[in-house]
Amino acid sequence: MTSCHIAEEHIQKVAIFGGTHGNELTGVFLVKHWLENGAEIQRTGLEVKPFITNPRAVKKCTRYIDCDLNRIFDLENLGKKMSEDLPYEVRRAQEINHLFGPKDSEDSYDIIFDLHNTTSNMGCTLILEDSRNNFLIQMFHYIKTSLAPLPCYVYLIEHPSLKYATTRSIAKYPVGIEVGPQPQGVLRADILDQMRKMIKHALDFIHHFNEGKEFPPCAIEVYKIIEKVDYPRDENGEIAAIIHPNLQDQDWKPLHPGDPMFLTLDGKTIPLGGDCTVYPVFVNEAAYYEKKEAFAKTTKLTLNAKSIRCCLH
């Protein structure tokens, strides 16, 4: 018999989150649709729960009410004593943790798909938090293969000092899905179709896995975050240069030392320094102006996964 890495157990509980950011409308629209008619997301033997994560922000069509829901799922915020004085999103995070967690427990949901849009030209993107997770690498390989020839990129946010504390991190297997470009507060049919297909293929993978299909060893190309880059700023902290036209919409493309990065209003080009080629992502993302992030630098690498098969009882 072929030796293989056996994944822990079959997958039982899956959640699909929309509206973690209330103005990213593809996930909101799909989740609302699936709450009314969820036939397309159901798979035999699998509990799939669509869920609106930040209903107040969705109602106002804004990213958040008090603070970013997708950055506060750490033990400090989840452990705060519940009171009306807490920011709305912290209270909501505790409610979500109660419903789908608790985080880092045996009772937490197996998989959470968190649906997002970006204003950046990132196409279909899967966000991975753990480079050693054979199950998710296999799932992402399946999704990428199923979507081809449509490109699907994998963004690895594993980093020693950049801690995200994402909404989906309460699950055993957290999956971020990011599709763009799409303006905030807008629905685009092409973007919706791409996100819908990503979810379909992900659920198909889980179904095949649960039925005992063995997935042979595989490898995927990923883009691992190195650092986030702020806009150049003046002495008052105001933005002093904008994304250069040569960099705009060039997510995932190589940016070499000396290539144009920013452009000042008086026409001066600010190039990339250093001696390493990087791959920019979230270029000129609207939501990241407040976070002082013009783009993120990534490096390209390959992740390998062992063969996996479900432990059938």
Score class of each variant (00 low, 15 high):
Glu9Asp: 13
Lys228Ala: 10
Glu95Gly: 09
Ala39Gly: 11
His10Arg: 14
Ser108His: 11
Glu221Met: 03
Asp85Gly: 07
Ser105Lys: 12
Asn304Cys: 13
Leu147Trp: 02
Ala241Glu: 00
Met198Ala: 09
Ile226Tyr: 08
Asn70Gln: 09
Lys80Gly: 15
Phe262His: 00
Tyr173Pro: 03
Trp252His: 08
Glu238Leu: 09
Arg43Asn: 04
Ser307Thr: 07
Leu162Cys: 11
Gln12Ser: 06
Glu211Asp: 12
Leu263Met: 11
Gly274Asp: 10
Phe113Ala: 01
Val48Gln: 01
Pro181Tyr: 03
Phe100Asp: 06
Val179Pro: 02
Asn54Asp: 10
Asn77Gly: 11
Phe51Cys: 14
Asp275Trp: 06
Thr166Lys: 13
Asp275Met: 10
Tyr109Cys: 12
Leu136Ser: 03
Gln248Met: 07
Lys144His: 05
Asp130Lys: 03
Pro245Thr: 04
Leu263Asn: 04
Thr166Glu: 13
His159Trp: 06
Trp34His: 01
His21Val: 09
Leu25Glu: 04
Asp104Lys: 13
Ile11Phe: 08
Ala165Lys: 07
Phe282His: 15
Ile225Met: 07
Ile52Val: 08
Pro149Val: 03
Pro254Lys: 05
Ile72Glu: 07
Gly79Leu: 12
Glu211Tyr: 07
Gly274Phe: 03
His98Ser: 11
Val48Pro: 07
Leu263Ile: 15
Thr53Glu: 02
His141Ala: 06
Phe135Met: 05
Arg92Pro: 06
Glu84Ser: 15
Leu187Gln: 05
Cys311Gln: 13
Val154Met: 05
Leu247Pro: 02
Trp34Thr: 03
Gly258Thr: 06
Lys253Val: 06
Gln184Gly: 10
Asn121Met: 05
Glu89Cys: 05
Ser105Asn: 11
Gly19His: 04
Ile191Thr: 05
Ala171Lys: 02
Thr2Ile: 11
Gly18Met: 02
Lys291His: 10
Lys144Arg: 14
Pro217His: 06
Ile143Gln: 00
Lys144Glu: 05
Leu312Gln: 14
Ser105Glu: 15
Leu78Tyr: 14
Val154Phe: 05
Lys103Ile: 07
Ile111Trp: 01
Arg92Tyr: 05
Val31Asp: 00
Glu290Val: 08
Phe100Gly: 08
Ala294Ser: 05
Leu272Gly: 04
Thr269Asp: 15
Ser83Phe: 07
Leu187Tyr: 03
Thr119Cys: 10
Arg168Leu: 12
Ile157Ser: 15
Pro280Leu: 02
Tyr173Glu: 04
Ala15His: 00
Met82Tyr: 11
Leu303Arg: 02
His208Cys: 14
Lys200His: 12
Asp193Tyr: 14
Asp230Met: 12
Pro160Gly: 09
Thr145Cys: 07
Glu235Tyr: 14
Thr277Pro: 13
Arg233Val: 08
Asn304Thr: 12
Glu221Leu: 03
His10Met: 14
Pro151Tyr: 04
Ile11Lys: 14
Thr20Glu: 03
Phe135Cys: 01
Cys152His: 00
Ser108Lys: 12
Val222Pro: 02
Pro174Cys: 12
Phe113Trp: 02
Ser146Arg: 14
Leu265Asn: 06
Ser161Glu: 12
Asn23Ala: 05
Gly22Cys: 08
Ile225Trp: 10
Ala287Thr: 11
Glu95Tyr: 09
Asp190Leu: 03
His201Asn: 11
Ile41Tyr: 03
Lys253Phe: 06
Leu78His: 13
Ile111Met: 07
Tyr288Met: 13
Leu156Tyr: 08
Lys13Asp: 05
Asp275Thr: 14
Ala148Glu: 09
Gly101Asn: 10
Ile16Leu: 14
Ile191Gly: 03
Gly79Trp: 10
Cys311Pro: 14
Asp251Ala: 02
Arg43Ile: 04
Gly237Ala: 05
Phe282Cys: 13
Ile16Arg: 02
Gln94Ser: 06
Asn133Ile: 03
Val283Ile: 13
Ile225Leu: 12
Ser169Pro: 09
Ala15Arg: 01
Leu99Asn: 08
Asp74Gln: 10
Pro271Gln: 13
Phe100Met: 07
Thr167Asp: 07
Lys81Cys: 09
Ser108Arg: 08
His21Arg: 09
Asp266His: 15
His116Arg: 08
Leu255Val: 13
Tyr288Gln: 11
Leu156Asn: 06
Thr277Cys: 08
Ser161Thr: 15
Gly237Asn: 13
Gly45His: 10
Thr302Gln: 10
Lys144Gln: 14
Ile270Asn: 02
Tyr164Val: 14
Glu227Tyr: 03
Ile127Pro: 02
Leu35Met: 12
His10Ile: 15
Gly101Cys: 06
Gln138Arg: 01
Leu247Gly: 03
Ile177Lys: 03
Ser169Tyr: 07
Ile191Gln: 07
Tyr173Trp: 13
Met122His: 10
Asp204Arg: 00
Lys172Trp: 03
Ile191Glu: 01
Pro151His: 08
Pro217Val: 05
Glu36Tyr: 10
Ser146Glu: 09
Thr298His: 01
Ser3Gly: 14
Glu214Ile: 11
Ala93Pro: 05
Ala148Arg: 11
His98Phe: 14
Asn236Leu: 15
Leu263His: 06
Leu303Pro: 01
Lys32Arg: 09
Pro254Ser: 06
Pro55Ser: 07
Pro149Gln: 04
Val186Cys: 15
Asp249Lys: 00
Ala57Ser: 11
Lys80Phe: 12
Asn210His: 07
His159Met: 09
Asp259Ile: 03
His201Phe: 10
Cys124His: 04
Val222His: 01
Lys228Gly: 12
Ile243Thr: 04
Cys152Arg: 00
Phe135Gln: 01
Arg196Tyr: 01
Leu247Cys: 03
Pro232His: 03
Ala39Gln: 14
Ser83Asp: 06
Leu147Ala: 05
Met195Thr: 13
